[in-house]
């Protein structure tokens, strides 16, 4: 599944990061690398973007970008 499908409070492990260019590089730089555990903290009031928790900090990304991140869901 992809990261945008993960519901708030659920955890996932990153399998692959898609996309290209600046966006992909930024996602990797911010620590969204394969095998990283992420949790979806919440969804913004207008339904987009989403807030993630990973590597001990909070990150926000847009749903269309989250869609490019392949994950497997994990039990908390």
């Amino acid at each position: 599944m992809t990261l945008n499908k993960l519901s708030p409070g659920a955890y996932g492990k990153i399998v692959a990061v898609g996309g290209e260019g600046a966006l992909r590089r930024r996602l990797l730089d911010m620590g969204l690398t394969p095998r990283t555990r992420v949790m979806v903290r919440k969804v913004a009031p207008m339904g987009d973007p989403i807030e993630l928790h990973l590597r001990g900090y909070e990150l926000t990304i847009r749903l269309e970008d989250a869609q490019k991140i392949e994950i497997t869901e994990e039990r908390a």
Binding site: G21, A22, L27, M30, P49, E58, L59, T60, R62, D65
Partner: peptide, 12 residues
């Protein structure tokens, strides 16, 4: 050109 991606930290 492509906008700078919106991948933003929410600092404490």
């Amino acid at each position: 050109g492509n906008p700078v991606p919106f991948v933003m930290e929410l600092p404490a």
